[in-house]
């Protein structure tokens, strides 16, 4: 049986990795497009920031449950429901943490000086090389921030997980829910241990990001 803290870490890791893979192309598009209705896409991406997690969780439950279109299809292929599974938690977390990854990615990519990109092209670098050698390294602090924020945000998520995961110990009971359960059952010692672990991880992450950015700024000056 997996401990709730370990499950939370695993969920956060998978979610932030997926957000990097999916969020970068989306951020790249947002940073470079001249599409008129870009603001609509940005609004949809930002929605999870203002939406109560329970609302998001509720809608996901409708879609992913065994009566939902997606949930039914998933069940036919895999034999188990999408809701109340680790995969369901991952999907919910990806949507819930999307703005925390995509917004830092987008502003980091957009802040790279266009003149550097023009210089790179005039030195014969194809767009792919320009991206990996110039854009990506210069945007890296923002990208790392986005990954870390989505990791930390997933780690602390409660509402979506509760709605969608159903608090099944060992499968969908994450640390934040376990803490809530422990408090309900007056198991303060266990709650304190788990809280301390989450606090430590979150703090270490944020300190890490700030130290990294500081070191980088110092090197570029």
């Amino acid at each position: 049986m997996i401990s709730p803290v370990f499950l939370s870490l695993k969920l956060a890791l998978v979610t932030s990795a997926l957000l990097f893979v999916l969020g970068m192309p989306l951020a790249w598009w947002l940073a470079s497009t001249r599409f008129r209705f870009r603001f609509l896409v940005e609004a949809v991406v930002a929605l999870p920031i203002v939406l109560p997690p329970t609302v998001l969780g509720f809608y996901l439950l409708l879609v992913l449950g065994s009566r939902g279109a997606l949930g039914a299809m998933w069940q036919r292929f895999t034999g188990h429901t999408f809701a109340f599974s680790f995969e369901g938690l991952v999907l919910g977390s990806v949507i819930y943490s999307l703005p925390f990854a995509v917004q830092p990615f987008t502003s980091a990519l957009a802040s790279v000086d266009r003149r550097l990109l023009a210089a790179s092209a005039s030195l014969g670098a194809a767009p792919w090389r320009t991206f990996w050698r110039i854009t990506f390294p210069l945007a890296l602090p923002g990208i790392v921030t986005g990954i870390a924020l989505s990791f930390a945000h997933t780690l602390g998520e409660f509402g979506v997980v509760l709605m969608l995961g159903g608090n099944i110990p060992g499968r969908t009971q994450t640390a934040s829910i376990a803490i809530y359960d422990n408090v309900q059952m007056l198991e303060y010692t266990a709650a304190a241990h788990q809280s301390l672990v989450l606090l430590g991880i979150s703090l270490a992450l944020l300190i890490g990001i700030h130290a990294l950015n500081r070191k980088r700024n110092w090197r570029m000056q």
């Binding site: 000086d113 003149r115 790179s120 005039s122």
Partner: peptide
């Protein structure tokens, strides 16, 4: 631009 083999330099060293 990257296939033109045209050298370009502006006022800002970039």
């Amino acid at each position: 631009a990257h296939r033109r083999r045209v050298g370009y330099l502006s006022q800002q060293s970039a």
